[in-house]
Design a protein around this nucleic acid. Structure first.
Length: 876
DNA sequence: GACGGAAATC
DNA sequence: TCCTTAATTTCCGTCT
């Protein structure tokens, strides 16, 4: 049987808006009404399994009802802008779900619903109406049911004829009479003053309709009531008329046109992603149910076995497709090229043997638009091809425009800019274990689509960058940096598996001993690595006092255990076990797995378009968190060596770069002075804050000053500082106050940057990197506070990232200019690692500080400290 | 396969 | 009254 579901769009969207807190996505768009509406839709579709579906909206401000009664819906509050903004999104949602929406000039949603309900009912449809408006109950009939939203958005009561009778004591068609008598404040319908639900129901039970009441007015009991009815006859009849849903409105669509197929489209996925609806995205489930491929064949793709020179013009978009995230190891699945001449797909083997194509790849005058230029360059490098002419990188561009877009699939990036022709890689190849190349030749089309989208995206993205004043940031910083990083990654750093294995054996022996003593102290054997089991042992069996809880049980985090250290000797053992276990599994075993079998080197992947602050991140392996703080861990660094005998590992790190950047941005005289005078910054802070002379600064004072300095660049809270220093919150608050008095420029900066974030919605770094902070005006204290701290921190951390990125580019050029054989290997946020032949050490000690300290001119000096040794461990 | 807890870095 | 210090990655155990 056919089933039609009709939804009063306006009503449900309103309901959702007021039922949910004012959510927003990462771009600051309000989304709560859309979210609630989507939830409701998905629930109804699942429960009702409709064959036909329509969402009706009110059109414009006036309807035929205003002609009869000019105050209809008068006195209503204006729609808040936070809500009206969301209606276009609701429309987009419905389009993405391929659900019919409809509005009709002069008519309200209920007239559309009423008319369709009637016609569909006559055609034998089962009809279900979803709304929060009780007026709709007048439509209830055999085969027409109304789901009335009670509270929230998904809590509904289903009304059939019996249910209406049970609740109101009248037949559904008498609902209009009820309203005629009692009125409706929300629609500004007057009714009869003094008649409420009780009286109205009683009257209708007796006389059936409003007209019936007036026909038998004499039989009405109660003198007062009779008078009131008499005086307001016209108003009662008018009210009934207004409350009556028009079941014969002049619709321009038929029930058939509302046919609905429950399909999950890429477009919907992309929209949910854009809106940040992760939970709904998960609900959509796997992407097996896809749009028909025909939607993705708009681009005509030539599958070729070799290129003619005329087909490779400049500029061209180039897709170098891989499946494996790790481009050092992964296979290239094929290439696609799209340009003014056409769009082409070529298989990997044929491409790599095609002279014309390879020459084109290596020709710097032939401009290429890429999705991820570093990935392409490194992958080709492993195949002996030196990619040149990488003129544009969509990944980097979109990252700069909005860091929140980091890691989005090309399909999403393109769709957002009106190019809706491609599927996501996850949809096309499948994700996780199911990832594979689909049967048939669909891949050529998919990659062709991607290349064509890249080509179209470039001018749009350049315009967006221009509007943000970020063109220089892309073309003079990130894009050149990608070339430098590609080289560093491909070079890799030599790692000794012998050293690692020896350390692993040593760790195993120690771990075994500790493990046994822990079991002995506990009296049982258990899995020490399981926080759950460990919690039970410590806090139940051994009766230690729990300090902190997690969602799932007792916290056994290091800072918690540290507080229990004196209570039981097992605590120290557990901390040791944890520490060494981490070394063994992550660093010894982890690193052994990623030493390249052919090169004996470790090739990390830097993610240049991920962090919200502009820093790089490093994966496979992460070489930015190799231990250094504790000696046991630091030994891991002994496994990292220079390529050649007699060479050195050379390390150069910025001293206090973030505080220097803060001094510059805040333009604080006192803080600047400290750096200009070359003082120890923490001692200087201690002097200023405690008002003592240099030689009066105690170790404790310096430690406190250091903690405040550290906290200040993270956007401090008094609570945080008190935890860190083990002092009371009040004392911490006084510290901070004192600090900000000492450095009034910093205070001014903190105030201004938060204000700027509030008005502009984002903050920027020295080189115009941007971070949006949608939560800055949130009513939720925590979200807002977090956004405020982020506003203070991001310009500092991000500008420091700008500085070192510029330094890397300059360093790369300088090495070339001076024709050195030294190679840059790693970047660890404020530190660069090189391998240097003995005879170049002296030169490097001059060049590196020079280049790094002058990467970007600040109004305080930058300072770089260098060191070197036969292994990374010794470069200290 | 997803999630939470823990730990490593700057 | 809440709740409370930036940014990451990796590993392990547990649950579905």
């Amino acid at each position: 049987m056919n089933k039609l579901v009709l939804i009063d769009g306006n009503n449900v969207v309103y309901r959702a808006f007021f039922a949910l807190p004012l959510l927003s996505n990462n771009q600051g768009m309000y989304t709560n009404a859309v979210y609630g509406f989507a939830m409701m839709l998905m629930k109804v579709i699942e429960e009702e399994q409709p064959t036909h579906l329509l969402v009706a909206f009110d059109a414009g401000k006036t309807t035929f009802r205003h002609a009869t009664y000019k105050d209809y819906k008068g006195g209503r509050q204006k729609t808040p802008p936070e809500l009206s903004q969301q209606f276009p999104l609701v429309h987009e949602l419905l389009d993405a779900m391929a659900i019919r929406r409809y509005e009709l000039e002069n008519y309200e949603a209920d007239d559309i619903v009423g008319t369709l309900a009637r016609t569909a009912h006559e055609e034998g449809f089962d009809v279900r109406i979803v709304t929060g408006d009780k007026d709709y109950l007048q439509l209830v009939d055999d085969g027409i049911k109304v789901s009335l939203i009670r509270k929230g958005i998904t809590d509904t009561v289903n009304y059939d004829v019996d249910m209406v009778h049970e609740r109101y004591g009248i037949k559904p068609e008498a609902v209009i009479d009820l309203k005629g008598l009692m009125g409706d404040t929300s629609d500004n319908i007057p009714g009869v003053p003094g008649v409420g639900e009780k009286t109205a129901t009683k009257l209708l039970k007796q006389f059936g309709t409003v007209e019936g009441v007036y026909e038998h007015l004499d039989d009405v009991s109660g003198k007062k009531l009779k008078e009131k009815l008499e005086d307001n006859k016209a108003q009662a009849l008018l009210s009934k008329q207004i409350a009556t849903i028009d079941k014969h409105s002049p619709l321009t669509l038929t029930v058939d046109a509302c046919a609905y197929e429950n399909k999950v489209t890429d477009r919907l996925r992309a929209l949910f992603q854009e809106l940040g609806f992760q939970s709904l995205l998960d609900k959509l489930g796997d992407s097996d149910v896809e749009e028909p491929a025909s939607d993705h064949t708009a681009v005509s793709v030539d599958v070729i076995s070799h290129f003619e020179a005329e087909q490779l013009v400049s500029p061209s978009a180039l897709i170098v497709q891989m499946l494996d995230e790790n481009y050092h190891y992964g296979d290239i699945l094929g290439f696609a090229v799209s340009n003014a001449v056409g769009t082409y797909f070529i298989e990997t083997d044929q491409a790599l043997h095609d002279k014309t194509f390879c020459n084109w790849l290596e020709d710097p005058t032939m401009k290429k638009v890429l999705l991820d230029s570093k990935q392409a360059e490194v992958a080709l490098n492993w195949r002996g091809i030196k990619l040149q002419g990488a003129a544009f990188d969509v990944r980097l561009a979109t990252y700069l425009i909005d860091t929140a877009e980091a890691g989005q699939d090309l399909a999403f990036l393109a769709r957002k800019r009106g190019i809706a022709t491609i599927e996501t890689d996850d949809a096309f190849y499948g994700k996780g274990a199911k990832r594979k190349i689909p049967e048939g030749d669909g891949q050529a089309q998919h990659l062709g689509n991607k290349a064509a989208a890249l080509l179209q995206l470039e001018p749009k993205l350049i315009e967006e960058l221009m509007n943000n004043e970020q063109k220089a940031l892309l073309f003079d910083l990130e894009l050149p940096l990608a070339r430098v990083l590609a080289k560093m990654e491909f070079t890799g750093i030599k790692a000794s598996s012998e050293t690692l294995k020896a350390m692993g054996d040593e760790l195993d022996r120690t771990l075994n001993v500790i493990e046994q003593s822990i079991y002995e102290m506990a009296g049982v054997t258990f899995n020490i690595n399981s926080p759950k089991q460990l919690g039970e042992i410590l806090f139940e069996k051994l009766q230690l006092p729990p300090v902190k809880k997690t969602k799932t049980g007792y916290s056994t985090a290091a800072d918690v255990l540290e507080k229990l250290r004196g209570r039981h000797e097992i605590i120290g053992k557990i901390l040791d076990y944890r520490q060494l276990g981490k070394l063994k599994s992550t660093y010894v075993e982890g690193l052994l797995k990623v030493i390249h079998p052919k090169t004996g080197r470790v090739h990390t992947c830097y993610n240049q378009a991920l962090t919200q602050t502009g820093r790089l991140s490093s994966t496979d392996p992460n070489l930015q968190n190799i231990p250094i703080r504790l000696e046991e861990g630091r030994k891991i660094r002994k496994a990292f060596l220079p390529t050649h005998e007699g060479w050195q590992i050379f390390s150069a790190d910025y001293s206090q770069i973030e505080l220097r950047v803060l001094a510059h941005i805040a333009d604080d005289e006192n803080l600047k002075e400290a750096f200009i005078e070359g003082m120890d910054i923490h001692t200087k802070t201690a002097m200023d804050v405690f008002g003592v002379d240099k030689d009066e600064v105690t170790a404790l004072m310096r430690r406190h000053a250091k903690a405040v300095n550290f906290g200040i660049i993270y956007g401090i809270s008094d609570y945080g500082l008190s935890q860190n220093l083990g002092i009371t919150r009040k004392e911490a608050a006084r510290f901070i106050e004192k600090y900000l008095q000492t450095y009034p420029g910093v205070q001014r900066y903190m105030d201004e940057i938060v204000k700027k974030a509030r008005t502009e919605g984002y903050v920027t770094t020295l080189l115009n990197r941007r971070r949006y902070l949608p939560d800055i005006n949130s009513r939720n204290f925590n979200s807002r506070s977090f956004a405020e701290r982020t506003a203070m921190n991001t310009p500092i951390q991000g500008s420091a990232a700008d500085v070192i990125k510029q330094a890397m580019i300059n360093m790369d050029m300088r090495l070339k200019e001076e024709q050195l054989t030294t190679r840059m290997l790693l970047q660890v946020h404020d530190e660069l690692i090189f391998e240097v032949p003995e005879q170049e050490i002296e030169r490097m000690q001059q060049i590196v500080p020079d280049v790094m300290e002058h990467a970007i001119q600040l109004n305080v000096p930058l300072k770089v400290e260098c060191s070197y040794g036969p292994t990374w461990y010794d470069a200290k």
